[in-house]
Design a protein around this nucleic acid. Sequence first.
DNA 1: AAAACGTGGTC
DNA 2: TGACCAAGTTT
Length: 324
Amino acid sequence: MISLAHNALYHWYAQNGRHTLPWRITTDPYSIYVSEIMLQQTQVKTVLEKFYFPFLERFPTLNDLAHADVDDVLKMWEGLGYYTRARNLHAAARQCNGILPTNANDLIKLPGIGQSTAHAISAFAYRESLPILDANVKRILHRYFAVKERNENKLWEYAYKLFDPSTPFDYNQAMMDVGATICTPKKPLCACCPFERWCQGKSSPLEYPMAKTKTQKPIRLRTIIVYQRENSYALTQRRTRFLSGLWGFYESEELADESLKYLGEVTQHYSHFTLQANVYLNKESILPEGFEWFDLDEIKKLSLSRADHKVIAQIVGDQKTYHH
DNA sequence: AAAACGTGGTC
DNA sequence: TGACCAAGTTT
C-alpha cells in the first residue's frame, strides 16, 4: 500500500532528512530557482560550499540578475560548469520582467527550465502538487518498481504512481534525501531504507537501472599558444557552443612552430571528450585576429574554463622559474 | 532522439 | 587511477 510507504518515508525524513540545506529553508522563489539550476548535474557539496551564497550575494533578486551584465553572471558561474545554465538563467530573468512565474506550466517556458526543474521550483516555492524526476528519484523508481530499462517517459509514469500529491514539498525533498544517502548507486543501504518493505528491487539493487554501455571518450590533441607582449597575454571570448561566453587562449589543431618555447601539457576531462594540449609561449608575434591583451590582474576579472586556468598556472610557474 | 554540454567527488 | 556519477536541458 503506497500510503504506508509514504508514512515510512516521512518518518525517515523527519529523523534523517537534510533539513539545513539553505534552499530548503528559504521561502524566496528566486533563491530556490537559482539553487535548482545550479544543482542540475552538480553535487550538493559543490553548490553549497562554493557557489550558492556568493551568487545570491552578487545578484540578490531576480531583478538584479535581469539588469546584470551576462559576463558578470558567467564570472559568478566560473568553475561550476555547464555554462549554458548561467546564460539561460540570465536570459530567463530578463524574460520574466522581474516576476518569476508561480506555476510549472509557465516556468517550463523559460530557457534552462525543463519538466523536472519546473516541477521542483513549483513544488518547493509554491507547494504545487507535482513530482520531480532527478537522478535520485530515478534510481529509487528503478529499484522500487524493478525497472531495468532507462526510459524517461516510463519513469515519469512511475514518478506519478509513487507520488504523494498531498504534501509535494516534503515528498520531493524526502525522495531526494533517500536517493542521495540511502538508495545510492554503488552501495545502497537497503536495511536503513524506508521503502525496504515495498521495494521490488531490494534483492539485487545494483541491477537497477541497467548499466550504461560504456563508450570510451575520444582524446582531442590540441595546441595552445600563449601570445605574450610584455606583461599581457592574448585572450578571446568564445562564441562557440562549447564554453560559450568564456575567455580562453589561442587553440588549434595544428602543431606548433618548433621555435616556440614549450611550457608543458594540459589535460582536461570533459563530459564527452578529453582535451590533451601542448602549451607554447610566443613572445614575438602580433595579436591574433579576435584576441585582446590582458595582464594577469585583468584576467582575474574574466571568466575562464578550468583548462585555461591550468594554462595560467603554467605561465606563472614559468615566470618563477625564469626569475631564479 | 542521440549527442552535446563542465567540473569535481568518490571509491 | 580511471570510470562512474551528480537536484537535466537543449538541439
